[in-house]
């Protein structure tokens, strides 16, 4: 019991954590495969990161240092809310510094700073099924994964290229994990996809509403789907960050007036502050 809350450490009871850990172990053993789990109703709404929160709760220990980001930033309202939830129910130390964190829960971004082997990144996933927009039935997509029948997705990419000259998917860009399973990387910008490939940190994905957990073990191949003659290309706004001058980070576009004025700043606030502090 813990911190005046009356709840178990990190909110979930130990039985539930054990169930989630089993799902995580299975997920790590079969990289990119979606493992159904008995997702619980959390005190935050579905869509707010209930899957990520359950995964974090299951892996968090007393000595962990937690960082929570949403859209790359530590101070977006939902990141604040989730960080407070764990500060309150687990009493763990929290940080905004990527390098100091042992567990990083994220929505929609991967930090710019390369992650290490002793870190875990937990992604919040709204829709774990990469084929969902092409085939709404989960009974059917499950069969497609079993047979590694991903022709439908290749056709979709091909049609995009013939129609637009490029693949039109700009976030949640599908990836092949370890050459076997097609996986939704969660709605991170395609810019972040290359960071997943052979990442040193363990990558865990939690989808609460859809009740699925999946994982990419450290140093596993993660390839963004493409064609030999149409290679995957990560793109970002062609500007430099107005605050730190970075030209290689992912940028937020901020509207500054109603005359079409825009400024571009790093979406990863910790990265940006670090560069400005010269650390």
């Amino acid at each position: 019991m813990n911190v005046a809350s009356g709840y178990n450490f990190a909110y979930l009871d130990e039985q539930t954590k054990r169930m989630i850990r089993r799902a995580i172990l299975k997920a790590v053993a079969i990289p990119g495969h979606q493992v159904p789990f008995g997702s619980r109703e959390m005190p935050l709404p579905y869509g707010w990161g209930t899957g990520g929160i359950q995964v974090t709760a299951a892996v968090l220990g007393r000595d962990d240092v937690l960082k929570v980001i949403d859209q790359g930033a530590d101070d977006t309202t939902n990141a604040v809310s989730i960080r407070r939830f764990f500060a309150r129910t687990a009493g763990v130390a929290t940080t905004t510094h990527t390098a100091e964190a042992t567990v990083i829960q994220t929505r929609h971004r991967i930090p710019e700073t390369a992650l290490r082997q002793d870190q875990i990144i937990v992604y919040q996933v709204p829709q774990p099924e990469p084929l969902s927009r092409l085939e709404p039935s989960r009974e059917e997509t499950r069969r497609m994964h079993a047979l590694a029948d991903y022709g439908l997705m290749h056709v979709k990419l091909y049609e995009d290229i013939t129609r637009f000259g490029h693949v039109s998917i700009s976030y949640d860009y599908p990836v092949m994990v370890d050459g076997r399973y097609l996986m939704a990387p969660s709605p991170i910008p395609a810019f972040d996809n290359p960071k997943m490939d052979r990442m040193a940190a363990l990558q865990l994905f939690g989808a609460g509403r859809e009740k699925r957990i999946y994982a990419v073990p450290p140093y596993t191949s993660v390839r963004s789907l493409d064609f030999d003659d149409h290679e995957f290309r990560a793109s970002r706004a062609p500007h430099a960050c107005l605050l730190c001058g970075a030209t290689d980070s992912y940028l937020d576009e901020v509207v500054i007036d109603d005359q079409g004025g825009r400024m571009f700043v790093c979406s990863d606030t910790d990265h940006c502050e670090g560069r400005r502090d010269g650390t």
């Binding site: 859209q71 991170i188 395609a190 793109s235 706004a237 979406s267």
Partner: peptide, 11 residues
């Protein structure tokens, strides 16, 4: 909830 990263990539 904020979706500016995704919207930015769509933009």
């Amino acid at each position: 909830l904020p979706h500016y990263v995704d919207f930015q990539s769509e933009l």
